[in-house]
Write a protein that binds this DNA or RNA. Structure first.
Length: 636
RNA sequence: GCCGAUGUGGCUCAGUGGUAGAGUAGUUGAUUCGUAAUCAAUUGGUCGCGAGUUCAAAUCUCGCCAUCGGCUCCA
């Protein structure tokens, strides 16, 4: 609720780009949907007693189809493991190769009810019950309902493949409302794969039984499957948890507790650069900086409303001089208190206050995920207190700053959501109207496309969320801008209006990175650890070829350091090849090889991570080149 | 929190009831070397933690913790 600046969803969506042939989305949906049914059929045949349990659920409006494949939920006496996959895939291929027809049938609730009861499929029955009366009920058969024989199709079928598929009652069906392929043979038997196993609550409800879910991926052609799997491998290589350890950026330690991040020297160096950049950008954009405490009297959270609604996500309070103190789960109330500390005139507004505020939230153990979902994190938080008529221009200002900052980190592709008033909400109609149209006005002025999420706003005000697209096409939610009518009310915030009456200011919450931890994780994955020169914790490493040049190297390092470069000497006494290899593995952007030749001619043999051997440069040229690249925030 | 899996030197992993191993990193020595791995020696582990079974537990059982894949949650 209030405050927000949430840690957004922790996983990105992996969708491959760059197919030779862009897959047809409609066709893919049909393939995946049909694959899901084929998998269910295979599983039920192979593991008798397994019940299927799948339904249309929130977020999966198209049934058991995902961004990259499909899934099905089972309640089975068998506990599935990956070892079962080969067998299931084999059976699925048989079903596909048999080219069984897929037949849609409209059924009456009574008839089908009896049939399901006979089958002993309680989940199916429950799904049926939830279908409103009067709605058309359909089921889909795989294999002809009467004969179970293959469709007469122009696809040649090997009769030997048919034999194993005869399962009582010779065909398989499930309730389903969505369209399917016409026959199983339309799927390429080599363009799908089973991927993973997971627990999933029946109906997505954590009070209901836990089912076994099997995920698969499916495509039109084996080449597309291959491209997807390659993409997945690429994502794995970029995993910030792996790179964070390899590049000595950060750690999360069992001894300290889950979800608590240790920034090691190299990671901390990057964070320092990011923070420094962030502060400057905010000061330049008319913000002032705040620092506020990490704990405070619990009463604040009662006033703000957090305690009533979100106590579960707050760490327990601690006793201080017989009063309850709370470690802060968000910064907003502190900015409000700062505001309330003195009387403000309408002439002062808007006030823009920013803080890199570290907050702690209790996340359930199973939700923790590297840097993406943690228990202690630093928000790049800011609040704008303004007059109603200033909302649009302030939002536009925020959008401009957001664009500037994100593009400096290499993110130029966004997906934008505008969320409007939900059913349960506070605030007068006209204020909502004003705020929402102000958001739209700002988005239009920016010329950004956006999707409207009707009723998706917080109860205290409408919001804009922004997802950024990374180097391999994944989307990450970072920035959020929210108008808040609630906190000013609860804390009775005021300003003195022109007519000398007291009025409530509008409060805007916003974060651009979301949290530094999470954004750092995204940066690591976006750059695959190859940070651009301006962010690289070590920009240059000098590799001495022989002992004689070490003093010279030391002098060069002093010079470069004085010029502001992050530079160091390789002290290892290893051979050049080894030193280069080490620097490459550490993803150092620039290495300068220095031997007698270089020392005598006052030059550097430069090798960049991207460009390989760049040849000889003198000190001035090297500095100029690097300065330019740093200024451009690019790589060399 | 729930389902499933995993936890062995800093890292990657082998070791299925009988004396804890490899590679790599680290350290030391030799080599002074020209664009992705020089050679040799060597340090380092109460096998996540705690109980239990057993003559004997890294190995079997139970509990807890953490991590991973998901589910749920994400103010």
């Amino acid at each position: 609720m209030v405050s927000s600046l949430t840690q957004p969803q922790s996983r990105s969506i992996l969708v491959p780009r760059d197919f030779a042939n862009e897959p047809d989305i409609q066709q893919l949906a049909l393939i995946r949907h049909t694959c899901a049914h084929i998998m269910a059929m295979a599983v039920q045949k192979l593991y008798p007693g397994t019940k299927v349990a799948i339904l249309f659920q929130r977020g999966f409006a198209n049934g058991p189809v995902t961004e990259t494949g499909f899934f099905y939920d089972f309640d089975s006496p068998v506990t599935f493991t990956r070892d079962n996959f080969a067998k299931i895939v084999k059976e699925m291929r048989r079903i596909i190769k048999a080219n069984l027809p897929i037949v849609r049938e409209v059924v009456s609730k009574q008839d089908i009810q009896a049939e399901i009861a006979d089958l002993g499929e309680p989940y199916k029955l429950e799904i049926l019950d939830s279908i409103p009366d009067g709605e058309i009920i359909t089921r889909y058969f795989i294999g002809s309902p009467d004969t179970g024989k293959s469709t007469k199709s122009n696809v040649e079928v090997d009769p030997s493949l048919l034999a194993p598929i005869i399962i009582p009652p010779q065909s398989w069906w499930d309730l389903c409302a969505e369209p399917h392929l016409n026959s199983t043979g339309e799927i390429d038997p080599n363009s799908f794969a089973l991927e993973s196993l997971a627990g999933a609550y029946w109906r997505g409800d954590e009070t209901k039984p836990m089912l076994q879910r099997i995920y698969g991926t499916a495509w039109e052609t084996p080449a597309q499957l291959e491209a997807y799997l390659t993409q997945k491998e690429e994502a794995l290589k970029r995993d910030h948890r792996k790179l964070g350890r390899e590049l000595k950026l950060f750690s999360i330690q069992e001894d300290a507790g889950g979800g608590l991040v240790f920034w090691h020297p190299r990671g901390a160096k990057i964070r320092y650069i990011i923070e420094d950049y962030w502060r400057k950008a905010h000061l330049d954009s008319g913000y002032e900086l705040l620092y506020t405490p990490h704990i405070a009297n619990l009463d604040l959270w009662k006033t703000s409303g957090h305690f009533d609604f979100y106590q579960e996500s707050m760490f327990d309070s601690m006793d201080v001089d017989e009063k309850a103190y709370q470690i802060k789960p968000m910064n907003c109330p502190f900015h409000v208190l700062t505001y309330k500390h003195e009387l403000h005139s309408y002439r002062e507004l808007p006030l823009r206050w920013a803080e890199l505020g570290t907050v702690y939230r209790y996340e359930r153990s199973g939700a923790l995920h590297g840097l993406m979902r943690v228990r202690g994190f630093t928000q790049d938080d800011a609040h704008v207190f303004c007059l109603p008529e200033q909302i649009a221009s302030e939002i536009l200002r925020v959008l401009n700053l957001t664009e500037q900052i994100l593009s400096d980190f290499g993110f130029n592709d966004y997906e934008i959501n505008l969320s409007t008033r939900p059913e349960k909400s506070v605030g007068a109609d006209e204020v909502w109207e004003l705020a929402t149209s102000a958001l739209i006005e700002a988005l239009d002025a920016k010329g950004w496309n956006y999707t409207i999420d009707e009723g998706g706003g917080a109860f205290y005000g409408p919001k804009i969320d922004l997802k950024i697209k990374d180097a391999i096409g994944r989307l990450w939610q970072c920035s959020t801008i929210q108008v808040d009518f609630n906190l000013p009310e609860r804390f009775e915030m005021e300003y003195v209006a022109a007519d000398n009456t007291r009025k409530r200011p509008i409060m805007i919450h916003r974060a651009i990175f979301g949290s530094l931890e999470r954004f750092f994780g995204i940066l690591i994955e976006n750059y695959a650890g190859n940070f651009p020169l301006w962010l690289a914790p070590i920009q240059v490493r000098l590799l001495p070829v022989t002992e004689e040049v070490r003093d010279y190297c030391d002098r060069v390092i002093t010079t470069l350091k004085q010029a502001g470069f992050r530079v160091e000497l390789d002290h290892s006494h290893e051979r050049l090849g080894k030193m280069i290899r080490t620097a490459e593995l550490e993803k150092i952007p620039v290495v300068a090889v220095i031997g007698m030749k270089e020392m005598e001619t006052q030059t550097f043999s430069i090798r960049t991570r991207k460009g390989g051997d760049l040849g000889l440069l003198n000190l001035v040229d090297l500095q100029q080149k690097m300065q330019q690249v740093i200024q451009d925030k690019s790589s060399l």
